[in-house]
Design a protein around this nucleic acid. Structure first.
Lengths: 163, 163
DNA sequence: GTTGAAAGTAATCCCTG
DNA sequence: CAGGGATTACTTTCAAC
């Protein structure tokens, strides 16, 4: 499952345009249509291409606040971590949750209608989980960047380290 | 540009499967193919459907660390914020940057090959920008959730607030 | 890897109700 | 909005190089 530069170029292009036609993709990567098609299918079968999705403009749907939340739990027993993650997985407003090493345990990203709604979400979390020692809220004023790294760049980095 | 329940259902489905055929989408939302097709095109033209993309399995490309970084700048003048954001936009390893209100100014998400590489990225940031008062690193041990909210849920929330 | 052809499927547009 | 029908475009497979 070694990826060559054609594979990486395919991944880069599909990452940016998941609906490009095979014919156009083949042209852009410099392969014949059949060769390109076979590679895409292989990448899908290997689950390297995991899924295709549309990105929706949230602003078109209304006004929302995004809040980053650092969380410290009372207990760090494996069982309590699992329970916290379980509760979080059931809250649709929590769109991201990372277990981190550092001065706190989790960092969440919460999307809510407004600050009142945000407090309701956190109340729900406290109600359902309970054993939170402390949490701090950081309201996102402006998202200045959101851009996945290109596959080809990621692999370049790996090669550098192997060298 | 008012969205009805058909539009929301279309957005929800396309968010999860950006490559569904129009025929299948029409079936799932309960519209004729032509009606469904026209709505999708309208949503694209209105930029509510912003882009289609493929999600790639980063683990298939090698081993990486994700680090969340809180940053406090020395100065909060508009010009300095803009310069910081400019520098960040040029660092491919910084995959996300949020300007926040709270105990610090920015929260970054950095993807690097390993901790040595991470330090290199931060060195580059310090070199290029300089006026950082303090930053703290939080290594992501485990991403426990990453799931955008469905369009229909977002809109339900808005209606609740309007009521 | 390539090309080219063939068959199936989907997108796109138009027109009628 | 639905539905049919026509056209064009794309996908997918396959054989031969």
């Amino acid at each position: 499952m070694q990826l060559d530069s054609f594979d990486l170029k395919i991944l880069d292009i599909l990452q940016r345009d998941g609906r490009i036609t095979n014919a156009r993709l083949a042209l852009d990567v410099g392969l014949s249509e059949s060769a390109c098609f076979n590679r895409v299918r292989r990448l899908e079968q290997q689950k390297i291409l995991q899924r295709y999705g549309a990105q929706i403009d949230r602003k078109a749907l209304g006004s929302f606040v995004t809040v980053l939340v650092s969380v410290i739990l009372e207990s760090h027993k494996q069982h309590e971590l699992a329970r916290f993650e379980q509760v979080v997985s059931g809250l649709p407003e929590v769109v991201e949750c990372n277990y981190v090493a550092g001065q706190f345990d989790y960092l969440l990203k919460v999307v809510a209608r407004d600050m009142t709604d945000y407090m309701r979400v956190m109340d729900e979390l406290m109600e359902a989980f309970g054993k939170v020692n402390q949490y701090s809220s950081y309201i996102v004023m402006r998202k200045t960047k959101e851009q996945e790294m290109a596959a080809s760049y990621l692999v370049d980095k790996t090669r550098r380290s192997a060298a």
